[in-house]
């Protein structure tokens, strides 16, 4: 580890920055969590069932897919396939983030993985472009997502029928807008434009033809292939990214 960030921030700073970075994400999550809890009640789930699912599965995508499939007797195979498909993107995300997690030794890496939601991962990637991801930053940024997700889904299951339709006040669009804001943080010029064209085109096409969640894998794959072919200077060393100097 030869390269350090230009300034060494204290643990308190890391904690403060982690909380500050995740705050807007938490705001956007609440309506989605409430909506999920409300949907669960339509399948006969009690608040305790929703609590267990959100605590242990802790994945909006997988949980929405599961509740859509839910019936008695329980369709275990369909739930397994759906969860694996929806979650497969995490493997790619982990491959991308892992080289930037060198501060995480032993159990810390295993614990960090538990909290790797789309949002925490995106903020981690964004952080890594400028400085090292510290253990303090990661957990104070990523753990609140778990707390707010569990709290909002359980609340939704209790107040669900009174909530009404979140789409009426545009709250169904909160996640889309949040992700657009996150994508902007990864802009690196023309290659990124091609990545977005390929990813969005493939995802939309597959969503219309084959259906979700295959579109996520198709879009991710198309974006990665586009980057491979449009990378402008393939042999230029990455002077700006700290992970380029490891080992």
């Amino acid at each position: 580890m030869t390269v350090q960030s230009e300034y060494q921030s204290s643990t308190a700073d890391e904690i403060r920055q982690g909380l500050a970075d995740i705050a807007p994400v938490l705001v956007a999550m609440v309506p989605i969590g409430l909506l999920f809890g409300a949907i669960c009640t339509t399948k006969g789930w009690a608040a305790s069932d929703v609590w267990l699912m959100s605590t242990l599965v802790f994945s909006g995508g997988a949980e929405f897919a599961a509740i859509g499939l839910w019936k008695w007797p329980i369709p275990y195979l369909a739930l397994f396939v759906s969860t694996a498909l929806v979650s497969a993107r995490h493997i790619l995300m982990g491959v991308s983030l892992a080289p930037k997690m060198h501060a995480f030794k032993g159990w810390r890496l295993w614990a960090a993985a538990w909290f790797m939601t789309d949002e925490a991962w995106a903020l981690g990637e964004r952080r890594a472009r400028r400085q090292t991801i510290t253990v303090a930053y990661w957990f104070f940024m990523a753990v609140p997502v778990h707390l707010v997700w569990v709290a909002s889904t359980v609340t939704g299951s209790m107040v669900g029928p009174m909530l009404g339709d979140p789409a009426a006040i545009g709250l169904d669009f909160a996640f889309t807008a949040l992700f657009i804001g996150l994508i902007a943080g990864f802009w690196k010029g023309a290659t990124t434009a091609w990545v977005l064209v390929a990813s969005g085109g493939a995802s939309a096409l597959v969503a219309l033809t084959i259906g979700e969640p295959w579109n996520v894998l198709a879009g991710a794959a198309a974006g990665i292939v586009a980057a491979w072919f449009t990378a402008t200077e393939p042999d230029e060393p990455e002077s700006s990214s700290p992970e380029g100097h490891l080992l």
């Binding site: 995300m93 991308s96 990864f186 579109n215 879009g219 991710a220 974006g223 990665i224």
Partner: peptide, 10 residues
């Protein structure tokens, strides 16, 4: 490219 590709695919 994984971050923007996955986020936009979603």
């Amino acid at each position: 490219a994984i971050p923007p590709a996955v986020l936009f695919a979603l």
